[in-house]
Amino acid sequence: VLKALERTRQLDIPDEKTMPVLMKLLEEAGGNWSYIKLDNYTALVDAIYSVED
């Protein structure tokens, strides 16, 4: 979780936006981090930006 938060902080995305999206992605992935961690957490960042749209 810390590495995911560090990555999104680099992009000026607050933890308050990151955590709900991260928890949803983890739930959808059955707790499997490998998809979320791919390409420096690209799936997480993309999911956060899609929620903002």
Results as ranks from 00 to 15, higher is better:
residue 48 I to V: 08
residue 53 D to H: 14
residue 17 K to S: 08
residue 18 T to D: 03
residue 23 M to K: 10
residue 25 L to G: 01
residue 20 P to F: 12
residue 13 I to P: 01
residue 30 G to I: 06
residue 22 L to G: 00
residue 47 A to P: 00
residue 35 Y to L: 12
residue 52 E to R: 10
residue 12 D to F: 12
residue 36 I to H: 00
residue 10 Q to N: 08
residue 8 T to N: 01
residue 51 V to D: 11
residue 1 V to R: 06
residue 5 L to G: 03
residue 31 G to L: 06
residue 1 V to F: 15
residue 48 I to R: 01
residue 33 W to P: 00
residue 49 Y to C: 10
residue 6 E to D: 07
residue 31 G to Q: 08
residue 41 Y to M: 03
residue 52 E to V: 12
residue 20 P to C: 10
residue 2 L to N: 12
residue 35 Y to P: 08
residue 33 W to M: 04
residue 10 Q to L: 12
residue 10 Q to E: 13
residue 32 N to R: 08
residue 50 S to E: 12
residue 26 L to S: 00
residue 51 V to G: 12
residue 12 D to N: 15
residue 49 Y to W: 11
residue 2 L to H: 12
residue 43 A to L: 14
residue 13 I to M: 04
residue 26 L to R: 00
residue 8 T to G: 02
residue 40 N to P: 01
residue 20 P to L: 12
residue 31 G to A: 06
residue 44 L to A: 01
residue 48 I to K: 01
residue 16 E to A: 11
residue 2 L to I: 13
residue 21 V to P: 01
residue 45 V to I: 15
residue 3 K to A: 15
residue 36 I to Q: 01
residue 18 T to R: 02
residue 11 L to W: 06
residue 16 E to Q: 09
residue 8 T to Y: 05
residue 29 A to R: 09
residue 28 E to D: 11
residue 25 L to R: 01
residue 42 T to I: 12
residue 11 L to Y: 06
residue 44 L to V: 05
residue 28 E to L: 11
residue 4 A to D: 03
residue 46 D to L: 15
residue 7 R to D: 03
residue 53 D to E: 14
residue 1 V to Q: 06
residue 2 L to R: 13
residue 12 D to P: 03
residue 12 D to S: 14
residue 31 G to D: 07
residue 26 L to Y: 04
residue 13 I to D: 01
residue 40 N to L: 06
residue 18 T to E: 02
residue 18 T to I: 06
residue 35 Y to W: 14
residue 29 A to H: 15
residue 21 V to C: 06
residue 31 G to H: 09
residue 36 I to M: 04
residue 8 T to I: 07
residue 32 N to I: 08
residue 9 R to K: 04
residue 29 A to N: 14
residue 35 Y to H: 11
residue 5 L to K: 02
residue 48 I to Q: 00
residue 6 E to T: 09
residue 5 L to A: 02
residue 26 L to I: 08
residue 42 T to G: 12
residue 30 G to M: 09
residue 23 M to E: 07
residue 17 K to A: 09
residue 50 S to C: 09
residue 43 A to K: 12
residue 16 E to K: 08
residue 38 L to Y: 12
residue 41 Y to K: 00
residue 37 K to M: 15
residue 15 D to P: 04
residue 7 R to G: 01
residue 50 S to F: 11
residue 47 A to L: 07
residue 12 D to E: 12
residue 29 A to K: 09
residue 40 N to W: 07
residue 29 A to I: 07
residue 3 K to L: 13
residue 2 L to M: 13
residue 4 A to E: 05
residue 18 T to C: 06
residue 33 W to S: 00
residue 43 A to M: 15
residue 49 Y to D: 06
residue 43 A to R: 12
residue 5 L to E: 02
residue 16 E to W: 15
residue 30 G to F: 09
residue 13 I to K: 01
residue 15 D to E: 03
residue 49 Y to M: 14
residue 53 D to Q: 14
residue 3 K to T: 08
residue 33 W to R: 00
residue 26 L to T: 00
residue 28 E to A: 14
residue 44 L to R: 00
residue 31 G to W: 14
residue 18 T to P: 01
residue 51 V to S: 15
residue 9 R to V: 03
residue 51 V to L: 14
residue 25 L to E: 00
residue 16 E to F: 11
residue 2 L to E: 15
residue 26 L to K: 00
residue 18 T to A: 15
residue 28 E to F: 08
residue 4 A to K: 03
residue 20 P to I: 11
residue 17 K to T: 11
residue 23 M to A: 07
residue 53 D to S: 14
residue 21 V to E: 02
residue 17 K to P: 01
residue 34 S to D: 15
residue 6 E to W: 07
residue 47 A to D: 02
residue 39 D to I: 03
residue 17 K to H: 08
residue 35 Y to K: 12
residue 35 Y to I: 12
residue 21 V to H: 05
residue 3 K to W: 05
residue 53 D to K: 13
residue 39 D to G: 10
residue 50 S to Q: 13
residue 42 T to M: 13
residue 28 E to P: 01
residue 5 L to N: 02
residue 36 I to C: 02
residue 35 Y to F: 11
residue 6 E to F: 09
residue 1 V to L: 14
residue 27 E to R: 10
residue 25 L to Q: 01
residue 45 V to W: 04
residue 33 W to I: 04
residue 5 L to S: 02
residue 15 D to C: 06
residue 34 S to K: 12
residue 53 D to L: 13
residue 11 L to V: 03
residue 22 L to F: 01
residue 30 G to R: 10
residue 28 E to Y: 09
residue 52 E to Y: 14
residue 20 P to E: 11
residue 36 I to V: 08
residue 16 E to N: 10
residue 18 T to S: 12
residue 37 K to F: 11
residue 37 K to C: 14
residue 11 L to I: 05
residue 16 E to P: 05
residue 29 A to S: 15
residue 46 D to C: 14
residue 6 E to V: 08
residue 24 K to V: 06
residue 37 K to N: 10
residue 44 L to E: 03
residue 50 S to P: 05
residue 8 T to K: 02
residue 15 D to K: 02
residue 14 P to Q: 05
residue 27 E to N: 10
residue 46 D to K: 15
residue 40 N to V: 05
residue 7 R to T: 07
residue 9 R to T: 05
residue 13 I to S: 03
residue 42 T to L: 13
residue 30 G to S: 09
residue 53 D to I: 13
residue 44 L to C: 03
residue 9 R to Q: 05
residue 14 P to R: 06
residue 36 I to A: 02
residue 3 K to D: 15
residue 3 K to Y: 07
residue 28 E to R: 10
residue 19 M to S: 03
residue 50 S to D: 10
residue 37 K to A: 15
residue 11 L to P: 01
residue 11 L to C: 09
residue 46 D to N: 15
residue 21 V to N: 02
residue 29 A to M: 13
residue 31 G to C: 09
residue 20 P to V: 12
residue 23 M to F: 10
residue 47 A to Y: 06
residue 32 N to D: 15
residue 43 A to G: 07
residue 27 E to L: 11
residue 19 M to F: 09
residue 17 K to V: 15
residue 18 T to V: 15
residue 37 K to L: 14
residue 34 S to N: 13
residue 6 E to P: 00
residue 24 K to L: 07
residue 9 R to C: 06
residue 7 R to V: 12
residue 9 R to N: 04
residue 14 P to N: 04
residue 25 L to V: 04
residue 29 A to G: 08
residue 9 R to W: 04
residue 8 T to C: 14
residue 22 L to A: 02
residue 25 L to I: 06
